[in-house]
Simulated assay, not measured.
Amino acid sequence: MKEAPLYFLLEIKNKTAYITVNRPDKLNALNTLVLKELAEILTRLKVDDDVRGIILTGVGDKAFVAGADIKEFQKFSSAEARQLSKSGQEEVMDELYTFPKPVLAAINGFALGGGLELAMACHIRLASEQAKMGLPEVSLGIIPGYGGTQRLPQLVGRGKALEMIMTGEMIDAQDALQWGLVNQVVSSEELIPTCERLLEKIYQRSQKAIAAAIRVVNMGLMQPEKGYEEEMDAFADAFDTMDFKEGVAAFLEKRKPNF
Protein backbone atom coordinates (compact mmCIF):
# COMPACT_ATOMS: atom_id res chain seq x y z
CA MET A 1 0.00 0.00 0.00
CA LYS A 2 1.20 3.47 -0.81
CA GLU A 3 0.08 5.11 2.41
CA ALA A 4 0.02 3.67 5.91
CA PRO A 5 -3.52 3.36 7.25
CA LEU A 6 -4.53 5.78 10.01
CA TYR A 7 -7.04 3.61 11.81
CA PHE A 8 -5.78 0.13 10.94
CA LEU A 9 -2.74 -2.06 11.20
CA LEU A 10 -2.22 -3.95 7.96
CA GLU A 11 0.19 -6.83 7.45
CA ILE A 12 0.41 -9.32 4.59
CA LYS A 13 2.08 -12.59 5.45
CA ASN A 14 1.89 -16.09 3.97
CA LYS A 15 -0.94 -15.17 1.55
CA THR A 16 -3.01 -13.70 4.42
CA ALA A 17 -3.85 -10.04 5.04
CA TYR A 18 -4.19 -9.18 8.72
CA ILE A 19 -6.47 -6.16 9.11
CA THR A 20 -6.57 -4.87 12.68
CA VAL A 21 -8.79 -1.97 13.74
CA ASN A 22 -6.44 0.31 15.69
CA ARG A 23 -8.42 2.70 17.88
CA PRO A 24 -7.74 1.30 21.36
CA ASP A 25 -8.72 4.55 23.11
CA LYS A 26 -12.19 4.24 21.50
CA LEU A 27 -12.43 0.45 21.89
CA ASN A 28 -11.98 0.31 18.10
CA ALA A 29 -15.32 2.05 17.47
CA LEU A 30 -16.41 2.73 13.91
CA ASN A 31 -16.93 6.16 12.40
CA THR A 32 -17.20 7.38 8.82
CA LEU A 33 -13.43 7.81 8.43
CA VAL A 34 -12.75 4.31 9.77
CA LEU A 35 -15.30 2.81 7.39
CA LYS A 36 -13.93 4.82 4.47
CA GLU A 37 -10.42 3.61 5.15
CA LEU A 38 -11.57 -0.01 5.50
CA ALA A 39 -13.39 0.26 2.18
CA GLU A 40 -10.16 1.49 0.55
CA ILE A 41 -8.15 -1.37 2.06
CA LEU A 42 -10.66 -3.97 0.84
CA THR A 43 -10.60 -2.50 -2.67
CA ARG A 44 -6.82 -2.89 -2.81
CA LEU A 45 -6.74 -6.38 -1.31
CA LYS A 46 -9.38 -7.67 -3.70
CA VAL A 47 -7.00 -7.30 -6.65
CA ASP A 48 -3.79 -8.17 -4.78
CA ASP A 49 -2.67 -11.56 -6.09
CA ASP A 50 -0.43 -12.04 -3.06
CA VAL A 51 -3.51 -12.14 -0.81
CA ARG A 52 -5.74 -15.22 -0.71
CA GLY A 53 -7.56 -14.54 2.56
CA ILE A 54 -8.16 -11.99 5.31
CA ILE A 55 -8.21 -12.07 9.10
CA LEU A 56 -10.09 -9.07 10.53
CA THR A 57 -9.71 -8.24 14.21
CA GLY A 58 -9.34 -5.39 16.71
CA VAL A 59 -6.22 -4.24 18.52
CA GLY A 60 -5.85 -5.28 22.15
CA ASP A 61 -7.88 -7.84 24.08
CA LYS A 62 -10.84 -5.69 25.14
CA ALA A 63 -12.70 -5.17 21.89
CA PHE A 64 -13.07 -6.41 18.35
CA VAL A 65 -15.17 -3.33 17.60
CA ALA A 66 -17.28 -2.00 20.46
CA GLY A 67 -19.80 -0.27 18.21
CA ALA A 68 -20.19 2.98 16.37
CA ASP A 69 -18.80 6.31 17.49
CA ILE A 70 -22.06 7.69 18.95
CA LYS A 71 -20.83 11.28 19.17
CA GLU A 72 -20.41 11.42 15.41
CA PHE A 73 -24.07 10.98 14.53
CA GLN A 74 -25.64 12.54 17.61
CA LYS A 75 -26.97 15.49 15.59
CA PHE A 76 -27.60 13.73 12.27
CA SER A 77 -30.80 14.40 10.38
CA SER A 78 -32.78 11.44 9.06
CA ALA A 79 -31.33 12.09 5.59
CA GLU A 80 -27.78 12.08 6.96
CA ALA A 81 -28.54 8.92 8.93
CA ARG A 82 -29.82 7.16 5.82
CA GLN A 83 -26.68 8.10 3.91
CA LEU A 84 -24.53 6.82 6.78
CA SER A 85 -26.38 3.49 6.69
CA LYS A 86 -26.26 3.29 2.89
CA SER A 87 -22.55 4.01 2.55
CA GLY A 88 -21.60 1.75 5.44
CA GLN A 89 -23.61 -1.14 4.06
CA GLU A 90 -22.64 -0.79 0.41
CA GLU A 91 -18.97 0.16 0.75
CA VAL A 92 -17.96 -2.05 3.67
CA MET A 93 -20.51 -4.58 4.92
CA ASP A 94 -21.73 -5.75 1.52
CA GLU A 95 -18.18 -5.64 0.18
CA LEU A 96 -17.06 -7.98 2.95
CA TYR A 97 -20.11 -10.21 2.50
CA THR A 98 -19.45 -10.67 -1.22
CA PHE A 99 -15.63 -10.59 -1.05
CA PRO A 100 -14.24 -13.25 -3.42
CA LYS A 101 -11.57 -14.33 -0.92
CA PRO A 102 -12.33 -15.86 2.50
CA VAL A 103 -12.66 -13.28 5.29
CA LEU A 104 -12.45 -14.47 8.90
CA ALA A 105 -13.49 -12.31 11.84
CA ALA A 106 -11.35 -12.93 14.92
CA ILE A 107 -13.62 -11.60 17.68
CA ASN A 108 -11.26 -10.86 20.55
CA GLY A 109 -13.55 -8.92 22.89
CA PHE A 110 -16.65 -6.76 22.61
CA ALA A 111 -18.42 -6.92 19.24
CA LEU A 112 -21.38 -4.62 19.71
CA GLY A 113 -23.66 -2.75 17.33
CA GLY A 114 -21.73 -1.90 14.19
CA GLY A 115 -18.93 -4.14 15.44
CA LEU A 116 -21.13 -7.21 15.44
CA GLU A 117 -22.53 -6.17 12.07
CA LEU A 118 -18.95 -5.99 10.79
CA ALA A 119 -18.26 -9.50 12.09
CA MET A 120 -21.51 -10.85 10.63
CA ALA A 121 -20.54 -9.51 7.20
CA CYS A 122 -17.43 -11.73 7.26
CA HIS A 123 -17.65 -15.28 5.93
CA ILE A 124 -16.59 -17.05 9.13
CA ARG A 125 -16.45 -15.89 12.76
CA LEU A 126 -14.18 -17.20 15.50
CA ALA A 127 -14.39 -15.83 19.03
CA SER A 128 -12.19 -15.80 22.10
CA GLU A 129 -13.66 -17.18 25.31
CA GLN A 130 -13.97 -13.62 26.67
CA ALA A 131 -15.89 -12.24 23.69
CA LYS A 132 -19.27 -10.56 24.17
CA MET A 133 -21.69 -9.81 21.33
CA GLY A 134 -24.86 -7.81 20.96
CA LEU A 135 -26.91 -5.24 19.07
CA PRO A 136 -27.79 -2.61 21.72
CA GLU A 137 -29.17 0.01 19.31
CA VAL A 138 -32.72 0.02 20.71
CA SER A 139 -31.24 1.39 23.95
CA LEU A 140 -30.41 4.52 21.93
CA GLY A 141 -33.84 4.69 20.30
CA ILE A 142 -32.59 3.39 16.94
CA ILE A 143 -32.13 0.01 15.25
CA PRO A 144 -29.10 -1.64 13.63
CA GLY A 145 -28.23 0.17 10.40
CA TYR A 146 -25.41 -1.84 8.83
CA GLY A 147 -27.36 -4.97 7.93
CA GLY A 148 -27.81 -6.34 11.44
CA THR A 149 -31.57 -6.89 11.15
CA GLN A 150 -30.99 -8.96 8.01
CA ARG A 151 -27.84 -10.97 8.73
CA LEU A 152 -28.52 -11.88 12.37
CA PRO A 153 -31.73 -13.83 11.55
CA GLN A 154 -29.84 -15.70 8.81
CA LEU A 155 -27.34 -16.89 11.40
CA VAL A 156 -29.39 -17.49 14.56
CA GLY A 157 -33.01 -17.61 13.37
CA ARG A 158 -35.81 -15.07 13.63
CA GLY A 159 -36.75 -15.68 17.27
CA LYS A 160 -33.28 -15.40 18.76
CA ALA A 161 -32.44 -12.46 16.49
CA LEU A 162 -35.50 -10.54 17.64
CA GLU A 163 -34.72 -11.38 21.26
CA MET A 164 -31.20 -9.99 20.90
CA ILE A 165 -32.32 -6.92 18.98
CA MET A 166 -35.34 -6.08 21.16
CA THR A 167 -33.56 -6.54 24.51
CA GLY A 168 -30.29 -5.07 23.31
CA GLU A 169 -28.51 -7.42 25.71
CA MET A 170 -25.14 -9.04 25.11
CA ILE A 171 -24.50 -12.75 24.82
CA ASP A 172 -21.25 -14.51 25.65
CA ALA A 173 -19.10 -16.57 23.32
CA GLN A 174 -20.57 -19.94 24.31
CA ASP A 175 -24.13 -18.75 23.67
CA ALA A 176 -22.98 -17.31 20.35
CA LEU A 177 -21.51 -20.72 19.47
CA GLN A 178 -24.67 -22.55 20.50
CA TRP A 179 -26.84 -20.28 18.35
CA GLY A 180 -24.57 -20.39 15.30
CA LEU A 181 -23.41 -16.79 15.50
CA VAL A 182 -19.78 -17.93 15.64
CA ASN A 183 -18.11 -21.03 14.21
CA GLN A 184 -15.62 -21.71 16.98
CA VAL A 185 -14.68 -20.48 20.47
CA VAL A 186 -11.04 -20.71 21.51
CA SER A 187 -8.68 -19.13 24.04
CA SER A 188 -7.39 -15.64 23.36
CA GLU A 189 -3.93 -17.05 22.67
CA GLU A 190 -5.28 -19.49 20.10
CA LEU A 191 -7.63 -17.08 18.30
CA ILE A 192 -5.32 -15.89 15.50
CA PRO A 193 -3.46 -19.24 15.17
CA THR A 194 -6.80 -21.03 14.78
CA CYS A 195 -7.81 -18.58 12.06
CA GLU A 196 -4.48 -19.17 10.34
CA ARG A 197 -4.88 -22.95 10.43
CA LEU A 198 -8.37 -22.68 8.98
CA LEU A 199 -7.15 -20.46 6.16
CA GLU A 200 -4.27 -22.85 5.43
CA LYS A 201 -6.83 -25.59 4.82
CA ILE A 202 -8.76 -23.28 2.51
CA TYR A 203 -5.61 -22.30 0.61
CA GLN A 204 -5.10 -25.95 -0.36
CA ARG A 205 -8.34 -25.79 -2.35
CA SER A 206 -9.15 -24.10 -5.65
CA GLN A 207 -9.22 -20.33 -5.30
CA LYS A 208 -11.60 -20.01 -8.24
CA ALA A 209 -13.97 -22.61 -6.83
CA ILE A 210 -13.97 -20.90 -3.44
CA ALA A 211 -14.85 -17.55 -5.02
CA ALA A 212 -17.67 -19.22 -6.93
CA ALA A 213 -18.95 -20.95 -3.80
CA ILE A 214 -19.04 -17.64 -1.89
CA ARG A 215 -21.00 -16.02 -4.72
CA VAL A 216 -23.50 -18.86 -5.07
CA VAL A 217 -24.14 -19.23 -1.33
CA ASN A 218 -24.75 -15.49 -1.08
CA MET A 219 -27.11 -15.57 -4.04
CA GLY A 220 -29.17 -18.31 -2.43
CA LEU A 221 -29.53 -16.27 0.75
CA MET A 222 -30.22 -12.91 -0.88
CA GLN A 223 -32.29 -14.10 -3.84
CA PRO A 224 -33.47 -17.67 -3.09
CA GLU A 225 -35.33 -17.99 -6.37
CA LYS A 226 -32.02 -17.56 -8.25
CA GLY A 227 -29.78 -19.68 -6.05
CA TYR A 228 -30.19 -23.04 -7.77
CA GLU A 229 -29.79 -21.55 -11.24
CA GLU A 230 -26.66 -19.71 -10.13
CA GLU A 231 -25.27 -22.94 -8.72
CA MET A 232 -25.87 -24.83 -11.96
CA ASP A 233 -24.15 -22.11 -13.98
CA ALA A 234 -21.16 -21.94 -11.64
CA PHE A 235 -20.88 -25.74 -11.54
CA ALA A 236 -20.84 -25.88 -15.33
CA ASP A 237 -18.37 -23.00 -15.67
CA ALA A 238 -15.94 -24.77 -13.34
CA PHE A 239 -15.49 -27.55 -15.90
CA ASP A 240 -13.74 -25.09 -18.21
CA THR A 241 -11.11 -24.07 -15.64
CA MET A 242 -7.54 -25.26 -15.23
CA ASP A 243 -8.30 -25.84 -11.54
CA PHE A 244 -10.86 -28.49 -12.48
CA LYS A 245 -8.38 -30.25 -14.76
CA GLU A 246 -5.68 -30.15 -12.09
CA GLY A 247 -8.05 -31.26 -9.33
CA VAL A 248 -9.29 -34.28 -11.29
CA ALA A 249 -5.79 -35.21 -12.42
CA ALA A 250 -4.49 -35.04 -8.85
CA PHE A 251 -7.37 -37.19 -7.62
CA LEU A 252 -6.77 -39.86 -10.25
CA GLU A 253 -3.01 -39.77 -9.69
CA LYS A 254 -3.50 -39.95 -5.91
CA ARG A 255 -1.56 -36.77 -5.16
CA LYS A 256 -2.31 -33.36 -3.73
CA PRO A 257 -3.53 -30.81 -6.31
CA ASN A 258 -1.34 -27.84 -7.16
CA PHE A 259 -3.81 -24.97 -7.41
Rank of each mutant, 00 (worst) to 15 (best):
4 A>N: 14
6 L>G: 08
9 L>I: 08
10 L>I: 04
15 K>E: 14
20 T>V: 14
22 N>A: 12
22 N>V: 11
23 R>K: 15
23 R>M: 04
24 P>Y: 04
25 D>L: 15
25 D>Y: 08
27 L>F: 13
27 L>T: 05
28 N>Q: 13
28 N>I: 13
28 N>F: 13
30 L>E: 04
32 T>N: 13
34 V>A: 05
35 L>I: 04
35 L>E: 07
37 E>W: 06
37 E>I: 12
38 L>D: 05
38 L>M: 15
39 A>R: 02
39 A>G: 13
40 E>C: 05
40 E>M: 08
41 I>E: 03
47 V>Y: 10
49 D>Y: 04
50 D>W: 01
54 I>N: 02
54 I>P: 05
56 L>F: 13
57 T>A: 07
61 D>K: 12
62 K>C: 10
63 A>I: 09
68 A>K: 06
70 I>H: 15
72 E>T: 05
74 Q>E: 12
79 A>L: 10
80 E>V: 04
81 A>W: 01
84 L>E: 10
85 S>M: 06
87 S>R: 10
91 E>F: 08
92 V>E: 07
97 Y>R: 11
98 T>K: 08
102 P>M: 09
105 A>G: 02
106 A>M: 08
106 A>F: 01
107 I>R: 02
113 G>V: 04
113 G>T: 00
113 G>N: 11
113 G>F: 02
115 G>F: 07
116 L>R: 00
119 A>W: 00
122 C>W: 01
123 H>S: 09
123 H>A: 05
125 R>D: 06
126 L>M: 15
126 L>D: 00
126 L>T: 08
127 A>S: 11
128 S>K: 08
128 S>F: 06
130 Q>Y: 07
131 A>F: 09
134 G>D: 03
134 G>F: 01
136 P>Q: 05
139 S>W: 04
141 G>D: 09
145 G>I: 05
145 G>E: 14
146 Y>T: 03
147 G>H: 07
149 T>R: 08
152 L>H: 02
153 P>S: 04
154 Q>T: 11
156 V>E: 05
157 G>S: 09
158 R>P: 00
162 L>N: 13
162 L>K: 08
163 E>Q: 13
164 M>G: 01
168 G>M: 09
177 L>M: 06
180 G>W: 05
181 L>F: 02
187 S>G: 07
189 E>T: 12
189 E>K: 14
190 E>K: 15
195 C>P: 01
195 C>G: 09
198 L>E: 02
199 L>M: 01
200 E>H: 14
203 Y>G: 06
203 Y>N: 07
204 Q>A: 13
204 Q>K: 15
205 R>E: 09
208 K>E: 15
209 A>P: 03
212 A>W: 04
216 V>R: 01
216 V>Q: 08
217 V>R: 08
219 M>Y: 03
229 E>L: 14
229 E>H: 12
230 E>W: 06
230 E>H: 09
231 E>M: 15
233 D>P: 02
233 D>F: 10
234 A>L: 05
235 F>W: 04
236 A>Y: 06
239 F>R: 12
241 T>W: 03
243 D>M: 06
243 D>Y: 03
243 D>S: 10
243 D>A: 09
244 F>L: 14
246 E>R: 10
246 E>C: 08
249 A>G: 11
251 F>S: 13
253 E>F: 07
254 K>M: 10
255 R>Y: 11
256 K>V: 12
